[in-house]
Design a protein around this nucleic acid. Sequence first.
DNA 1: CATATGACACTAT
DNA 2: AATAGTGCCATAT
Length: 111
Amino acid sequence: MPFMKDSSFSQAVWRITKEIPLGKITTYAQIAQALGRPKSARAVGNALHKNPYAPIVPCHRVVKSDGNVGGFFGGKSAKKKILRSEGLKIVKDKIANFQSLIHTFKAKNNF
DNA sequence: CATATGACACTAT
DNA sequence: AATAGTGCCATAT
């Protein structure tokens, strides 16, 4: 629904998530920081959970701070599958070399 | 307006 | 290393 106005916070989350390059990942905390709210990692997760642009926004490239894949609408299994199809290696629900694959954003406070 | 919830993070155990 | 408790923030009810 194009008329529905979502909170500026959520829109910012989706916009940032869309910028994650193929083959890379980021954490909920990173997104929160990019928004100028380093402690809003949880809220970021909520925004992604409610994201209406499911296939457009690569929410599957957003993982937990410790490399665990975290949650997903279709379950962790689905998320892991997609990530593997993008060239990422996953071992025991964690991203291999995850530290070096994290994509960091430039803090953009424009909501 | 008050309380509960969740796709998180950090620290202590 | 794995688990549990605590903090935090945006929504839902």
